[in-house]
Amino acid sequence: MFTWGPKYLIGFSFVAWGGALLYGLITGGDIVGVASFGYKGGVGDHLGYTLLMGAFLITAVLAGVLFATRDGEAETLARLAGTDNVPQVTPPTAPSYWGALSAFGAACLMLGVAVSSVFLYLGIAVLVVVAIEWLALTWSDRATGDPATNRDVKDRMLAPIEIPMLGALAVAAIMIGISRIFLAVSKTGAVVAGGLVATAIFGTAVLLTQTNAPRRFISAAVAGLAVVVLGGGVVGAIVGERELEHHEDEIHSEDSGSTEEGMMIHE
């Protein structure tokens, strides 16, 4: 009865509707206002309310349309075509993370509207990515009857964008993460931390190439490194930069312009 398209959309519309109500209330609207689309009474922050309510309306209408047209129902199609047999339904060929990710994106979006614009942008970015990827996946799933070919078709279309974006994301994550660590610790600490990171990376590589480590072990090592770098980065960012300007001011007052670092080099 309900195929997965309307199911998803209905779920989405409910979340968006709830979000809109909640958001309207939080930002100072009253109950009647938010429930009546602002017909009587305030809705709080207009932009966020409109966005969320708009999302609700659009998804609700789409869900309705899909349900009404019985999109994707094999039995209906068979009946329409006048055949006795139900055509074989192609099951999804690979696990898809896009549903989960889109929920995450939607959550971010709502959180962003309510809390901080960082989340808003993150949510938008995630949703854009999900939209593109999911569209391409759905399209390619129908390109031919052969799942492997379909996957390749999709790869060929999206790989030119995916590869550099993934690479850039990975590099950016490492760069930002490690530099936060450097900035958080002391000057000597940065050297030590850098040395440790590099040694860890290189040492792990040497170990992995020398031993005949199973794949799981390699994955674990890589994941461990990633957790350390990103976790360290997050911790570093929270701790904040060590006080850099402070030194300069201090020195300025007693000695015309020379910095502590300058003295350190000459010592």
């Binding site: 009857g145 052969d146 070919t149």
Partner: peptide
């Protein structure tokens, strides 16, 4: 060769 028998549609899918 193609499970779905859709060889022709496969010719120029891109």
């Amino acid at each position: 060769a193609l499970p779905s028998g859709a060889a022709r549609t496969a010719a120029k899918p891109l």
